[in-house]
Amino acid sequence: MKETTLHVIGMTCNHCKASVESALNELDGVTTATVSLPDNSVTVVHEDVTQERLVEAIEEIGYDVAPA
């Protein structure tokens, strides 16, 4: 298992949190995605999913991403 933490720009509420977690949890190979609103970050536990694919999934729903 790998753990990747990304800084997500633009999350402000629980709806944002749920949207990001849902988008990531739908990816094959993702075990869990947990958003921290105070830190504007998401930590993803996964296998065989590239960081680029994680970023792409978040950007597809309208948020900007930077490595945490």
Rank of each mutant, 00 (worst) to 15 (best):
M1H: 08
E3R: 01
E3I: 02
T4D: 02
T5M: 07
L6A: 02
L6M: 06
H7P: 00
V8N: 04
I9C: 00
I9V: 12
I9Q: 11
M11T: 02
M11K: 13
M11S: 10
M11E: 04
M11I: 02
T12A: 08
C13T: 10
N14D: 12
N14R: 14
N14E: 07
H15S: 09
H15L: 01
H15A: 10
C16Y: 01
C16K: 09
C16V: 05
C16S: 05
K17C: 08
K17G: 06
K17V: 15
A18T: 12
A18P: 02
A18I: 05
S19H: 13
S19A: 14
S19R: 15
V20L: 07
V20S: 03
V20A: 10
E21A: 04
S22A: 14
S22D: 13
A23S: 13
A23K: 06
A23R: 04
L24C: 11
L24R: 12
N25E: 13
N25F: 00
N25P: 09
E26T: 15
E26C: 14
E26M: 15
L27Q: 13
L27E: 03
D28R: 14
G29E: 09
V30M: 08
V30A: 00
V30Y: 00
T31H: 15
T31V: 15
A33L: 05
A33I: 04
A33R: 06
A33S: 10
A33Y: 12
A33V: 13
T34A: 13
V35H: 06
V35G: 06
S36N: 14
S36H: 14
S36D: 06
L37N: 09
L37C: 00
P38T: 03
D39P: 02
N40P: 04
S41Q: 07
S41H: 04
S41I: 14
V42E: 07
V42G: 07
T43I: 09
T43R: 01
V44E: 01
V44C: 02
V44K: 08
H46M: 03
H46C: 04
H46E: 08
E47C: 05
E47S: 05
E47F: 06
D48K: 00
V49E: 04
T50F: 06
T50M: 11
Q51W: 00
Q51H: 01
Q51I: 05
Q51G: 01
Q51M: 09
Q51Y: 00
E52L: 04
R53M: 11
R53L: 04
L54T: 09
V55C: 02
V55A: 07
V55F: 03
E56D: 14
E56L: 12
E56P: 08
A57H: 03
A57V: 05
I58P: 10
I58A: 05
I58S: 03
E59L: 06
E59T: 07
E59W: 11
E60Q: 15
I61W: 11
I61S: 09
I61T: 05
I61E: 09
G62H: 03
G62E: 02
G62A: 09
Y63S: 05
Y63C: 10
Y63M: 07
Y63V: 03
D64Q: 15
V65F: 04
V65G: 03
V65T: 14
V65L: 11
V65D: 08
V65I: 01
A66D: 13
A66Q: 15
P67H: 04
P67Q: 08
P67I: 00
P67K: 02
A68I: 11
A68H: 13
A68K: 12
